[in-house]
């Protein structure tokens, strides 16, 4: 079954935006997006190389995840981890270890960045990624 296409971005519930749409549902999505941009700009890989990883992660998700809500930026982040480890910029274990450590922080410490938090204004104040632990 194909899920219905949501047009909520244009609905009355959509927050007003300068350019007419909400581009990120949660701050972490904007950080993941920007990391890919920055690494491309710094020459660590090209956009087309990243795109190949993105296509592969979307494809494998779609063939394995019937009935599960598709979340584009989760696939984006997965592709980013994939290319970063594939090109030996970082290793899988170190990313995993850091993520486990962050996930284990006391409740309230990670600001509930689960992809469902609303109310942020798209500006990059106080979101994850800039905390120092």
């Amino acid at each position: 079954m194909m899920p219905a296409i949501s047009l909520d971005v244009d609905g009355p519930a959509a927050p007003p935006r300068l350019n007419g749409e909400l581009v990120f549902d949660a701050p972490w999505q904007s950080r993941s997006f920007a990391m890919a941009m920055a690494l491309v700009e710094e020459g660590h890989f090209t956009w087309d190389q990243f795109r190949d990883h993105l296509i592969a992660t979307i494809d494998s998700w779609e063939s394995a995840s019937e009935g599960v809500q598709y979340r584009y930026y989760e696939r984006w982040q997965e592709a980013l981890e994939s290319i970063v480890t594939n090109r030996r910029i970082l290793t899988n274990p170190e990313i995993h270890e850091r993520a486990i450590a962050y996930a284990a922080r006391p409740a309230g410490h990670d600001h509930g960045h689960d992809g469902h938090d609303h109310g942020h204004d798209g500006h990059d104040h106080g979101h994850s990624g800039r905390h120092r632990h």
Binding site: R98, H113, D114
Partner: peptide, 22 residues
Amino acid sequence: PSAAVRTEALESLLVERGLVKS
């Protein structure tokens, strides 16, 4: 961990290594 937490982990590592700037 969730994509949000993994994103934060990845950024912190990349920043520590001087590969990206916040």
